[in-house]
């Protein structure tokens, strides 16, 4: 419900102004996406001659094809598709494993509390907020020692470790709302630790599973710092490839190809956002304020 005081018969004029302001903001917010999208369908000539805000005169998907398959990143000219699949190969295991660990942690930290559970949760939670610069140097060394530096596997490990904090937070806050009597009832019915988790809690966790997957997916997909620090060359994720493509100083800047590549990097998270915005917002909110 709106808290707005229902001003009796707010003037038509003031309503019009209100909608106008909101519309201006909406246009301002959509503008960069619009420009990015239209630019990606223009030829380079048109970009140099035409207006940034105009629709393409001659629609072309050439920039997209080039971005996907033949743009030069570093010395390789195979486009971003390989990096796109790198990102998928990183995201899927990282999301699933950190999510499962978080679900278990949330379950234990709410329903099987032990002495010191608050400290354990506090330590796990704080890991969400550290500036990752603090772990870059030792992590680079450890990945080297484990022989998974510059590899997708290494990035999966990194994302699992630093994803646990948020996944644990989500599941803990969710399971906190389940009455403890539920667990007691199940114990009286003869169910054990894992049976209670898999038969009773997990099937009732769909909303928080969706929130967690979306949150982790967005975070891991959009990561740049870990990617640029721990994976160079062939194992880099899409964000790193995009940055290398856009900010390489060699040759003529193909803005249309850059924008197409940026769209390729943006599309997966945008789709998730459009399909499940409610859950995306819920993740954001519980990542900042509790409950």
């Amino acid at each position: 419900m709106s808290t707005a005081p229902p001003t009796a018969r707010a003037g038509v004029l003031s309503r019009a102004i209100l909608y106008a302001i909101l519309a201006v903001f909406a246009i301002a917010y959509l503008m960069p996406l619009y420009v990015m999208l239209t630019t990606s369908f223009k030829t380079l000539d048109e970009i140099h001659q035409g207006n940034m805000l105009a629709l393409p005169d001659n629609w072309t998907i050439q920039p997209w094809l080039e971005a996907w398959g033949s743009a030069c990143i570093g010395l390789e000219c195979n486009g971003v598709h390989g990096y796109f699949f790198n990102s998928i190969r990183i995201v899927v295991p990282a999301v699933l494993i950190s999510g499962l660990l978080g679900a278990f942690n949330g379950y234990v930290l709410t329903k099987w509390r032990f002495r010191g559970h608050r400290i354990v949760f506090g330590l796990i939670l704080f890991s969400c907020f550290i500036p990752f610069q603090i772990i870059l140097l030792p992590m680079a060394r450890v990945l080297g020692i484990l022989n998974i530096a510059n590899s997708v596997t290494g990035l999966v490990l990194v994302h699992i470790v630093y994803g646990i904090g948020f996944t644990t937070l989500f599941f803990r806050n969710y399971y906190e709302t389940f009455p403890n009597e539920l667990i007691r009832a199940a114990q009286l019915d003869g169910a054990g630790f894992f049976t209670i988790f898999f038969r009773i809690l997990l099937p009732a966790s769909t909303p928080i599973i969706v929130v967690t997957i979306i949150w982790q997916f967005t975070n891991v997909w959009n990561d740049f710092l870990f990617g640029v620090s721990f994976a160079s060359g062939d194992s880099a994720p899409i964000t790193v490839a995009l940055n290398n493509l856009v900010n390489s100083s060699t040759g003529v800047k193909a803005y249309n190809v850059n924008m197409a590549a940026a769209m390729v990097a943006a599309v997966p998270t945008l789709i998730v956002y459009i399909l499940a915005g409610k859950y995306f917002l819920r993740g954001l909110m519980s990542g900042s304020v509790k409950g």
Partner: peptide, 8 residues
């Protein structure tokens, strides 16, 4: 929606 985009 911009919140869903990568900073890159």
């Amino acid at each position: 929606y911009p919140m869903a985009l990568s900073f890159i």
